[in-house]
């Protein structure tokens, strides 16, 4: 949430869909804004390689695999471990049998993997918000927003606003 009292500010420009974004992004890069401080908001995913925060060295699938492994371990404990602690003979079946432990572990692996992947993605989405401006409903109609994060006293603030105006922004806002 962009707080007015905080040391950071977000300059937000809203553009009509046909506005070419490429020159704006290039200019921002020339002005030495790092990739982590620029965000593009749109109604559908438009960039395969976004300019944005924190996703770079992080692969979600690693989280999935680790969570799945923990799930298998949990499943083995659940189906095999507790049976060993509570060894009751039923119908000539072994107390611990690999196929049954396998079934339960499979389900637990999936449960852990899916839930953890989901939670990680949600946390990542929530944490990415400090770069982007508040949501503008016009984005849903095809407009594109560019947010630039900088320090409150950054001298580049004025030029960025001018750049947005020149490029034909419908609205420029400082949060």
């Amino acid at each position: 949430m962009a707080d007015t009292k905080s040391a950071k500010r977000i300059i937000f420009g809203l553009f009509e869909p046909q506005t070419p974004l490429r020159p704006i992004l290039d200019r921002l890069q020339e002005m030495k804004f790092s990739e982590e401080s620029i965000e593009i908001s749109s109604a559908t995913p438009i960039l395969a390689q976004p300019v944005g925060v924190g996703w770079k060295r992080f692969r979600l699938v690693h989280v999935t695999i680790i969570a799945g492994a923990i799930g298998i371990f949990f499943g083995v404990l659940l189906a095999g471990g507790t049976a060993l602690l509570y060894p009751i003979r039923t119908g000539g079946k072994p107390i611990v049998s690999p196929s049954i432990v396998g079934i339960i572990s499979y389900e637990m692996m999936m449960l852990f993997a899916i839930v953890t992947t989901f939670i990680t993605a949600v946390v990542k989405v929530l944490r990415s918000h400090r770069v982007a401006a508040e949501y503008d409903p016009r984005i849903d109609e095809g407009f594109v927003g560019i947010s630039v994060l900088s320090d409150r006293g950054d001298p580049r603030g004025g030029p960025v606003q001018d750049l947005f105006q020149e490029a034909g922004a419908v609205e420029v806002e400082v949060q």
Binding site: I88, R89, T90, G91, G92, K93
Partner: peptide, 20 residues
Amino acid sequence: HCGSAPCEPVCPVYASYHTP
């Protein structure tokens, strides 16, 4: 009172089990 009773392992709560 089967030695290898089909009814026992299918019980999810160990209500059916084999005594020593």
